[in-house]
Structure formats: structure tokens, C-alpha cells
Design a binder for these strands. Structure first.
Lengths: 173, 173
DNA sequence: GCATGCCTGGAACGAACGTTCCAACCAGTA
DNA sequence: TACTGGTTGGAACGTTCGTTCCAGGCATGC
């Protein structure tokens, strides 16, 4: 779903790629595809949070840490032939306004990731209100840059985003 | 496709909603769905460019103009019950790496929109290299903020993005 | 009025979709 | 050994998908 989105990903395709019986999928996700997708988004939430947490920890300075994050994301993207961008964006977008469970799970994921960034920014003397705003823009700019990088098959949007986010953060202290 | 993405949007659904015979769709788009989607992306490219051009023109100062753009985007989003975000993101993401024509059309759209922003920024004394970088981040942050606004059904991400983009631009002069 | 294009209506195709069902299976425990 | 719970294999359901085909309509040109 990260690569193809919700609709293009079939349950049979999932069961085959996982070497698992189709019945088993319906055994563990009785409500079908929507339940599976919701859990997939929640799983991707945790997985992506781990990646970000680790990348943020490599640099003590929050501004520098942003650059580290964009570098890690660029690596993942490049190593997967520009296929593995944000794990939930595609699914979130095409189900927005149609499948509320998935939309809610996606909203919670963004909130979760924002909290990680905010946590990192609290090691500065930036005011709490500004920190919360910055966390918004950091995640949103990363999302947009990852999308652009994927579509253009280039790491440049992510590199630029890293530098600009660092500059924006530094402008608050 | 703006609302549902590529896979979830059927050709029959399109022909019905357009009050047009299914045969007519295949008459004008002989190569089928992929060709139709590619043209749809190109059309959305122009349409979105018009919206941005108009919004950018409402404010003489480029930094202020960014806030105007986010306000306009927030309006569109709110008026459509948070359904009409960026017209190509969903389609671009789920076809990335799978349908090259669509991916190319999407990349050209982003390039087109960046050029509009760069054009506006040339009314300042910012160095050309910085202008091109800023255009990248402006579009990418708008994309990310629009996604977040749509998923969270709130205009807040766009409002914050507008303020931060203005601040970032002003930091260059 | 008649012929020559382009366009449409409607039916049909095979394939894939999500989902359901049930018999068979295979741990465990007693 | 017998039983019981959870898990699987495989076939089948109806529906929808993208696509194809062709006879008919309907203007425009002579």
C-alpha cells in the first residue's frame, strides 16, 4: 500500500506475497480490507516513527537533526528505486473522506510524528507555541519533499528541504 | 481522480458523471484509462496554475503572497468538505514507478508551479540560486500542508505553512 | 436527396476484485 | 486415544473492472 496505494493493492496479492492463505487474512482481519489497511497504517506509523527517532538522535542540534532526517529519507527512497516514500501518504489521500477509520489512523500517525519533532525542538529555548507550529511545518515539508523526490526521482527536494527547515528553526533562536 | 485517486476512479464512473457515452471516452482517448489520466493531470496542472497565479497576484510582496495562497487553498479545501486538495497528488503517488506517462506529467506540473513561485520571487533582491531552492520548498510545503489539512480536516496546517514560508523568504533579504 | 465522415448507444468479453463458505488439518490437553 | 480450538486449502459467489465491437444516428458536404 505504501507503493501502490489502497485500491491498487489486492488482498489476494497481499496473501500471496506474504505466503499466507487468503482465509488466514480474513481470519485475522474479519472486517476485511478496510480493517487490514487501518492496521497497516498503524503499523507504518510505528515503523516510520522508529526511523525518524533514530535519525533525529544522530545530531544533538535540532536544526542539524533535520538535515540528518532528510538524508535518511533520501537514502530509503534511492535504495528502493524511488518507490518507498512516506508509507501512508498514498493510502491516506485516496481514502480521505471515504473511509473514516483509515483517515483517523493517518491523522494519528501525523500527530505522532509531529510529537517526535516537537520533543527534539524542546532542547532549545524556542517558545512552546512556536515549537508546535514548527513541528507542523517540519512534518508537512518532509511529506511534500518526499513526494516531489519520488515523482522526480531525485534527492534534491529532500536536500533543499533539510537546509530550509534548519534555517527556519534557527530563525527562532 | 483528485478525490479518489487513479485506481478508485472508474472509466464508467467518469462517463456517467460527465453524461457521456462510454464509447465516446474511448473514442477520444483510444489508449484507454492511462491516456485519460495523463491528460487529466495535464489539465489539472493548468487549472491549479491559474489558481496560484491569481492568488500570488493579490499581494505585491512575495512573502505576503504566500499567505494569500495558503488562504485560497484553505478555502477550496473547506468549501469542498475537505475533499479537493492538490488535484494530482493522489494520482501521482499511486502511479509513481508504475505508469511512467502519468509520473512524467505530474513532474512537469510540479515544475510548472515552481516556475510560478520563482517568477514571483524575482521581484526581490534574492539571489537566483536561492530563489530556485525557495520555489522547491514553497511548493513542497504547500503540498504537505494541504495533505495534512485534508487528513485532519483543519485549515491550521495551511495557515502555519503560510506564515513559515513568508518567514523563510524574508530571511533571505 | 444522397453519400461520407465522425460520434454514440448498448451489449458483450475475459479478468480481477472482495468476500464467503466449509471440509480438512494440526497443534494442544485430558 | 479422543477431543477441541484455532488455522488453512481451495473452490465458489456476485460484482465490477477496463476494454472491444458494431450497428445505428446524425450532422456536413456535394
Amino acid at each position: 500500500m505504501q507503493r501502490q496505494g489502497y485500491e491498487a493493492t489486492g488482498i489476494k496479492q497481499i496473501s500471496q506475497q506474504a505466503n499466507v492463505a487468503l482465509s488466514s487474512v480474513y481470519h485475522f482481519f474479519p472486517s476485511g480490507k478496510q480493517e487490514l489497511a487501518t492496521e497497516a497504517v498503524r503499523h507504518a506509523d510505528q515503523e516510520f516513527a522508529d526511523i525518524m527517532r533514530e535519525a533525529l538522535a544522530t545530531e544533538a542540534d535540532p536544526a542539524e537533526a533535520m538535515i540528518a532526517v532528510t538524508q535518511v529519507l533520501a537514502e530509503y527512497l534511492h535504495n528502493s528505486d524511488w518507490l518507498d516514500g512516506c508509507p501512508i501518504t498514498a493510502t491516506a489521500l485516496e481514502t480521505a473522506g471515504r473511509i473514516l477509520d483509515i483517515q483517523r489512523a493517518a491523522a494519528e500517525a501525523f500527530e505522532h510524528w509531529r510529537a517526535l519533532v516537537a520533543e527534539k525542538l524542546r532542547h532549545t529555548d524556542i517558545a512552546e507555541d512556536d515549537i508546535l507550529d514548527l513541528a507542523h511545518t517540519v512534518i508537512n515539508t518532509l511529506e511534500g519533499a518526499e513526494l516531489a523526490a519520488q515523482v522526480s526521482k531525485s534527492a534534491e527536494p529532500l536536500e533543499i528541504a533539510g537546509r530550509h527547515l534548519a534555517r527556519l528553526i534557527n530563525s527562532y533562536r
